[in-house]
């Protein structure tokens, strides 16, 4: 356990070393939030609702999209991908550690910085964006938020492994982000999507990242359904963790040999 703790601490330290980068990310995030709020304000200015969301609800939804977007994201998947592409991962294989746990610890170390980003920008958003409903069930919301980071990590770790074969992360990352943005509900709520996309989202893990916590926040789902959705999140954590483990075992056989 100890090396993983140290790893998380080291990783936290390195996020603080890059505070300027995070400051810029915060500015960019504010810009995006302002733009999407403006868009929804225009669409819902007459006081109606779209897909069951009124304007205040939509603002709260966007806030949750922002919050969940940060969890597990400070240590970018690029850090993991580069470790594979540069061949650094070869050195991890001669250490008495498990690469997956090590990278998870690394991701976990980003949490303090993520919370800072969430609290500062989020608080600003609440102050500026105007009236919006508060969370309908705080304990359930917190519980569902806890699962976001592990799920995001597993998805990132799994897709990152494709680098063993592709040697290039751009394509993999673009594809995953595009699909993820739609199917997680972070772009627009899933209820606004055509049925076939909703069905697709229902069988994939992405909805657990944003849609589930956002719906629980807004009380759009009944308490039993909320428990069910949290159960689905827990299922994905376990399933993806083991899938990633098996995949890594296969992928690490692909370690190519550079330089003779």
């Amino acid at each position: 356990m100890k090396p993983y703790r140290t790893m998380a601490r080291n990783s936290m330290q390195s996020t603080f070393a890059f505070r300027t980068a995070f400051l810029m990310a915060a500015v960019a995030a504010c810009f995006q939030l302002v733009a999407t709020v403006a868009l929804w304000s225009a669409l819902l200015s007459n006081g109606g609702s779209i897909g069951g969301f009124t304007l205040p609800e939509m603002k709260a939804y966007l806030l949750m999209g922002y919050v969940t977007g940060w969890l597990g994201n400070a240590i970018g998947e690029w850090v993991l991908a580069n470790r594979i592409r540069d061949g650094q991962v070869a050195l991890d294989l001669v250490k008495p550690i498990e690469t997956q746990k090590m990278m998870f610890a690394q991701t976990l170390g980003g949490l303090p910085m993520e919370l800072i980003m969430i609290v500062t920008v989020g608080a600003g958003f609440v102050l500026v964006a105007g009236p919006m409903p508060g969370p309908s069930n705080i304990p359930l919301l917190m519980l569902s938020l806890v699962f976001v980071m592990p799920i995001r990590f597993c998805i990132a770790f799994l897709t990152t492994q494709l680098v063993f074969w592709t040697q290039n992360f751009h394509g993999v990352s673009w594809a995953r982000n595009a699909v993820g943005a739609v199917l997680s509900g972070s772009l627009v709520p899933l209820s606004l999507m055509p049925t076939w996309l909703q069905t697709t989202a229902a069988v994939l893990p992405f909805a657990s990242l944003t849609s589930t916590p956002a719906l629980i926040y807004l009380g759009k789902v009944s308490t039993p359904t909320a428990y069910l959705l949290i159960g689905v999140q827990a299922f994905w954590v376990v399933a993806l963790w083991f899938l990633a483990r098996v995949a890594f075992r296969a992928a690490s056989r692909q370690v190519t040999v550079h330089g003779g």
């Binding site: 330290q13 390195s14 070869a90």
Partner: peptide, 13 residues
């Protein structure tokens, strides 16, 4: 193990 062309140091630390 030491690979002269790689480092096992954490880059930012």
């Amino acid at each position: 193990v030491l690979f002269g062309q790689r480092t096992q140091l954490w880059w930012d630390l």
